[in-house]
């Protein structure tokens, strides 16, 4: 028993010693590990800081809004997304102090159809969905036929806007008639009201419906397009904001289109980029409106197909290019 006691007592004290010993070692170890962790952490942090702050010479070329090509470091780029509300607001407001006007010279159109493809590309349309189309015209049996590109006329007295029951289509201060596909209910009153047949209806799912999934809707581009709503020519409102000519105007190879600001009395040819005085151009060439008797006051002028530089080969020649 005694023996046992003798043996147990030291064991007990040993335990006590052990425990006190372990606390001491614990603190010792804790101190060591803590110091090591702090040093390691600091090292990792400084490494991270360096990694973040070190000059990165990987540059990206960026085209600024005022059409300048600049280089910015790749790591400095921040992705900004225009939210829907802001886009809708600026789309409704339009550009102050402008009155856009288009002049189409029928003498030069030879049905190259570049305007149509450029437009369809920009607005994600199928080859048979048109914002602009070139029609074959012949006034009477004895007069010469000609090609007539026909976009939306962006009337100053738009019948389509007057009939819209939900304020989805509207006229802006710069004269452009736009459609808000977010508001459009697809009643097609505007299609019936438009005397120029400028509007189209999305009967089927739009062309790039899957690719456009998640893209913020742009009221000035009508992209993504929406099934069951109206779409039409927008005078490329998104391009005008950037100071660029509309898609159709700049893609014409034959110099058919002029576009400009009526307030500045100037229009620029999309092919040659030459600028003319609007009033002089219309006066010299006998410019006219389509169906002026309707009182719609279009913003698109036509120059008659006089002194044509090429032969009209009838409807057979779908793609004729200057050579």
């Amino acid at each position: 028993m005694n023996d046992k006691k003798l043996t147990t007592e030291p064991e007990h004290t040993k335990k006590m010693e052990d425990s006190s010993n372990s606390r001491r070692t614990f603190f010792k170890r804790f101190g060591l590990i803590g110091a090591a962790a702090a040093t390691g952490g600091a090292a990792i942090y400084t490494g991270f800081e360096y990694e973040v702050s070190k000059p990165n010479h990987d540059f990206v070329k960026v085209l600024t809004a005022d059409n300048k090509l600049v280089e910015v470091p790749r790591d400095q780029i921040k992705n900004l997304t225009m939210d829907l509300t802001r886009k809708q607001q600026q789309g409704r407001d339009g550009l102050a102090g402008r009155r856009w006007v288009m002049v189409i010279d029928l003498a030069k159109c030879r049905n190259a159809r570049k305007c149509i493809t450029a437009c369809q590309g920009a607005h994600h349309l199928r080859p048979y969905e048109y914002h602009i189309n070139t029609l074959v015209m012949q006034e009477s049996e004895n007069t010469a036929p000609y090609y007539m590109p026909k976009p939306c006329q962006h009337c100053d007295n738009p019948p389509c806007v007057a009939v819209c029951p939900v304020d989805a289509t509207f006229k802006r201060q710069d004269g452009i008639v736009l459609i808000d596909n977010e508001r459009c209910i697809g009643c097609r009153f505007c299609v019936a009201a438009c005397p120029y047949s400028a509007r189209m209806f999305h009967w089927e799912e739009p062309l790039q419906v899957e690719a456009d999934n998640g893209v913020t809707y742009d009221i000035e581009l009508n992209v993504p397009q929406k099934k069951g709503t109206i779409s039409k020519c927008l005078f490329s409102a998104d391009r005008l904001r950037e100071g660029k000519l509309p898609y159709c105007v700049s893609s014409c190879p034959n110099g058919v289109y002029y576009f400009g600001d009526e307030n500045q009395d100037a229009v620029t040819n999309g092919t040659t980029k030459e600028t003319f005085r609007l009033s002089q151009l219309l006066k010299d060439n006998g410019g006219y409106h389509l169906m002026p008797e309707l009182g719609t006051k279009p913003r698109v002028y036509y120059l008659p197909p006089k002194n044509r530089l090429f032969e009209f080969n009838g409807e057979g020649d779908k793609v004729v290019e200057q050579g």
Binding site: A266, K273, T275
Partner: peptide, 30 residues
């Protein structure tokens, strides 16, 4: 300067012996 490009006014003029060329500014240009 116009919104989409430069509108050339009154053609091309050549300087005289005094190094002076005269351009008529078009009437009514906004």
């Amino acid at each position: 300067r116009r919104y989409f490009g430069n509108l050339q006014v009154d053609g091309v003029h050549t300087t005289d012996n005094q190094g002076v060329a005269v351009f008529n500014f078009p009437k009514g240009l906004p």
